[in-house]
């Protein structure tokens, strides 16, 4: 970008975020998923579905589909990479760390590449974007824990 761009915005739109926006990973469905859940942002209409396949207590596979801004899509994409292979408790802990990072309450030292989202904390309106798929993932985790034949997700909004 040749025009003026603040340091805050440079940090918000890091190249890893733009890359995952253009080429999201695990952007697919999982036909034999243990659970899935929707995330909807009524303010902008952005919408994602997250699928989880559990093997016992371990997230064997995780995927997402839907549409949204670069922040929400890249966050969903990087989330699927981070969560895959983790235990349920580890995935929950990642959620808390990530939430802390984007709301500016923690440094997210354990987050690895997800630290690219640290710039979000300076744009409070974008916290919802960054956490949209994460909330869906957590609610799918809850559903998966409830039993094999999980109920369909509650319609939101």
């Amino acid at each position: 970008m040749t025009g003026p761009m603040s340091a805050d915005l440079e940090e918000l739109y890091q190249s890893i975020i733009l890359d995952h926006n253009r080429r999201p990973q695990n952007f697919r469905t999982i036909p034999d998923a243990s659970a899935h859940a929707d995330g909807l942002n009524p303010m902008c209409g952005d919408q994602f579905t997250v699928w989880l396949k559990m093997n016992g207590d371990v997230v064997e596979d995780v995927s997402f589909q839907g549409s949204g801004c670069a922040i929400s899509k890249a966050s969903a994409s990087l989330m699927t990479q981070a969560v895959k292979g983790k235990t349920r408790a580890e995935a929950e802990k990642l959620f808390d760390s990530f939430h802390g990072l984007v709301t500016g309450h923690s440094g997210g030292e354990d987050l690895g590449r997800l630290k690219a989202f640290s710039g979000v904390s300076r744009f409070p309106l974008r916290v919802k974007c960054a956490t949209l798929a994460w909330h869906a993932m957590r609610s799918a985790l809850d559903d998966a824990a409830k039993g094999p034949a999980s109920s369909p997700p509650e319609p939101q909004a």
Binding site: L9, C69, A70, R126
Partner: peptide, 15 residues
Amino acid sequence: RDVHPHDLSQLLDAE
């Protein structure tokens, strides 16, 4: 194309 309106408006806001 390929740029969500939210991202566009955020970047326009910077100008």
